[in-house]
Design a protein around this nucleic acid. Structure first.
Lengths: 134, 134
DNA sequence: TCCAATTATGCAACATTGTTGCAAAAAGAA
DNA sequence: TTCTTTTTGCAACAATGTTGCATAATTGGA
């Protein structure tokens, strides 16, 4: 059985074409994707269905919002241990200044000191040159 | 002379009502403001003029983009040493989960390790409880 | 395999955010 | 004040995202 089908069934979601297509697009691209990227990649699929698909994948913890940049929202696959609604935390998202792609660096580490503000979650947006462009 | 007028003259910008109003709004609020916040605070000013005003203040290094969140962009005043176009870097932006305000923590410090990606600039978005809400 | 119940999709219409062109108004200098 | 330059405000447009609803697809059970 397809990997995407298993992912969906594990989350008690119906297996539909658009959900498989979207998940496959994420699996085939190491960088984060916006709805606009997905429309370009997958051909002329319905905007509304795409937004609703992303919302479902968000709700079930299959993807997370990587970055909002220039009125576009970028999404990336979650790690397998990402539980519903408690995700999108402690991520480093990296935007390459050369190829403009957004990468989700799950393994990065960080130390913060925030002067009296009680931090629950954080999200680091870095930019520079990615592994391919440097 | 008003503080806002001095700020504008220092940057060789004309002193206009909307620019003073916007700068004063930032000075009177310790948290970051979106165009929508500014419209609410300052009454029914023209949307286009507001966007153009923010763009000018951005270009001249008087404000920077603090955060894009839920299709809204939040802006905050720059420090006095913020030079044109070379700003919005190395900031920590903190969203309070209780009052929803976005704060710009200029003084925070951070240490990052980003596995082979060459970081030029970064921007940390943290959330939790702010000084007033905790 | 077919049926029925449930869920998802696609379309139209709408809402919000942001942009562009251009004429009228305001700011600054002489 | 007067003239030049810049800014504002309006209209129209563009892009992103949302809602309602009828149609189509998925899934579990006969």
């Amino acid at each position: 059985m397809d990997e995407t089908k298993e992912l969906l069934k594990k989350k008690e979601l119906r297996v539909t074409q658009i959900r498989c297509q979207v998940l496959e697009a994420f699996q085939e691209n190491e960088h984060a994707l916006s709805p606009q990227d997905l429309q370009a990649l997958l051909g002329g699929l319905d905007r509304v269905s795409l937004y609703r698909t992303l919302q479902v994948l968000l709700d079930k913890g299959l993807v997370h919002k990587a970055l909002e940049k220039n009125t576009q929202t970028y999404y990336a696959l979650c790690d397998s241990d990402c539980s519903d609604h408690a995700h999108s935390h402690q991520h480093v998202h990296f935007t390459c200044e050369s190829c403009e792609k957004v990468y989700c660096l799950e393994q990065a580490s960080i130390q913060v000191d925030t002067k009296g503000y009680q931090v629950h979650t954080w999200n680091l947006n870095a930019s520079g040159l990615c592994v391919n462009c440097r």
